Amino acid sequence: MATQLSTIGFDADDTLWQNERFFRMTEERFTMLLSDHGEAGDISRRLLEAERRNLSIYGFGIKGFTLSMIETAIEVTEGRVPADTIKEILAAGREMLKHPIETLPHAHETLGALSNAYRIVLITKGDLFDQERKLAQSGLGDYFDAIEIVSDKTPATYARIFARHGDGADRAMMVGNSLKSDVVPAIEAGSWGVHVPHPLTWALEHAEPPVGSPRFRAIDDLGLLPGLIEELA
Rank of each mutant, 00 (worst) to 15 (best):
R53A: 08
R94K: 14
D127L: 03
R52M: 13
R24T: 14
D167W: 11
K63R: 14
T7S: 02
G190T: 08
I187S: 02
I229F: 11
S56Y: 12
V196F: 01
V183N: 00
D11E: 14
T77L: 08
R80M: 15
D145E: 12
P210T: 11
V194C: 00
S178R: 00
P226I: 09
A91T: 06
L140W: 10
P197C: 06
K153D: 10
R215T: 09
P210G: 06
L16T: 06
F65G: 00
A207L: 05
V196I: 12
I120Y: 00
K134N: 09
Y58T: 09
A146G: 06
N116L: 13
P214F: 07
R119L: 09
E39H: 13
T26E: 03
A146R: 04
V194R: 00
H99E: 13
M174Q: 10
E51I: 08
N19R: 07
Q131R: 00
P105R: 00
M1L: 13
I89R: 00
L67P: 00
A73F: 05
K153G: 08
N19V: 09
D152H: 12
V175H: 02
K180Y: 12
E132T: 08
I149F: 11
R21Y: 15
I147L: 12
P155Y: 02
L200R: 09
I70F: 06
P210F: 10
P214L: 08
T31P: 08
E27Q: 15
V183T: 01
R171Y: 01
S6N: 15
A159L: 08
M32L: 09
I70E: 12
I229K: 04
M96L: 15
D36S: 12
A146H: 05
E71D: 14
N19L: 03
T201W: 07
A107S: 15
G61F: 04
M173T: 03
I149S: 05
F23S: 01
G168D: 06
R119G: 10
T85M: 15
M25E: 13
L16V: 11
R119S: 08
F30P: 06
I219S: 02
A2C: 10
D42V: 15
E109L: 07
V211F: 13
V211R: 15
I62K: 03
A189H: 01
N116V: 07
I70A: 13
S35E: 13
G193W: 01
A186H: 06
L200G: 08
E78P: 01
